[in-house]
Design a protein around this nucleic acid. Structure first.
Length: 335
DNA sequence: AATACGGGGTC
DNA sequence: GACCCAGTATT
């Protein structure tokens, strides 16, 4: 594995540094459930704006949000921001696995990565790459997301991870999973551990890791409320509550059918027009969003802003600068 | 044990 | 369209 890594591993990613746990930390959070290629579009910009844990800790959430907007899983950014403040309050980075895990947004695998890649100490990880490599190498049956299989994989990973060149091994097994032992078209002929891979020996590589059959993603309908101040051209935007979907980002008001009726009645409004429906798919549901355009008069501005909590009048560029989800860009693209 | 939580890469 | 990705927190 280590020889293969020296020759064929990835060595030039911007967070591959030996002297900066903060850089490694930010990258690990961005990389949770997110591919390297995607993170490359965000990492340098974030590090330039928040070069140290102190700068991040001192910033407000509204300063952080634009640098995460579009990357998804916004709880990661909230947790990272909060954890930066924890680190500064503690007077420095954790030095133990449990110390890292005590920080918001850091679980067992990220803590292991930080011990290994961040601090050059002993650490074990369990990401999608490791799950796939190990479950194939040992031909591990059973749902790879189930508690017993996860426990078995952790046991195996801990046993296989060396103390010598620990960080190189950590990087090696991820690189192997990302470039050779890939999900769809694995390149087993180039695998450094193909000879003793049980799945390969059985010609069943694609049978692992085993997963339960996914259930259908539910569909939901809602309306996007477009309220335009005809004098300024601004729309009413809402900062979403920090918990939940798109937490802390700015968004046009989204309401469902009953709330739309109540809203129209409250202000004696009817939608002047509706723009084409926007379909937006998440991991856990698909949203069909119908933008409803309302013509309003200036006497209503105050009342409307009161009605929608945490709302303010912004032109489109202002909203984009504050950080909006991708679905709102779709809506803007149609207007 | 199941669910919430984004968005893009890739076939 | 379906599956996957350097997972974690909450229910």
């Amino acid at each position: 594995m280590l020889d293969w890594f020296d020759q064929h591993g990835r060595h030039d990613l911007p967070w591959q540094v030996r002297d900066n746990p903060y850089k490694v930390w930010v990258s690990e959070i961005m990389l949770q459930q997110t591919q390297v290629k995607t993170v490359l579009n965000y990492f340098d910009r974030f590090m330039q704006r928040f070069p140290t844990v102190e700068t991040l800790a001192q910033a407000s959430w509204d300063e952080v949000a634009p640098y995460w907007a579009g990357l998804g899983y916004y709880a990661r950014a909230r947790n990272l921001h909060k954890a930066a403040q924890q680190v500064v309050a503690q007077g420095g980075f954790p030095t133990t696995l449990d110390g890292w895990m005590a920080l918001s947004g850091i679980g067992r695998s990220t803590a292991g990565a930080l011990m290994s890649l961040g601090l050059q100490q002993y650490g074990v990880i369990m990401d999608g790459n490791v799950k796939r490599v190990l479950s194939r190498h040992q031909a591990i049956a059973g749902d790879s997301m189930s508690t017993p299989v996860i426990a078995q994989l952790w046991q195996l990973a801990t046993q296989l991870t060396p103390k010598q060149r620990n960080a190189d091994y950590t990087q090696a097994i991820m690189d192997l999973g990302a470039t050779i032992c890939t999900s769809k078209k694995p390149l087993c002929l180039y695998c450094p551990v193909g000879e003793d891979c049980k799945a390969y020996q059985q010609n069943r590589v694609l049978d692992f890791p085993q997963k339960k059959v996914a259930k259908a993603t539910p569909e939901k309908q809602a309306f996007v409320i477009i309220l335009e101040n005809s004098e300024t051209g601004q729309w009413l935007w809402q900062q979403r509550p920090s918990e939940g979907l798109w937490g802390g980002l700015y968004c046009l008001p989204i309401i469902e059918q009953p709330e739309l009726a109540a809203f129209e009645a409250r202000f004696s409004l009817t939608a002047a027009s509706s723009m084409p429906m926007v379909k937006h798919s998440f991991t856990h549901f698909t949203w069909f969003l119908t933008p409803q355009v309302f013509e309003i008069n200036t006497a209503q501005l105050e009342g409307l802003q009161q009605y929608f909590v945490a709302s303010q009048w912004l032109d489109k560029q202002q909203a984009v600068d504050k950080g909006i989800p991708k679905a709102m860009l779709k809506v803007l693209g149609q207007s």
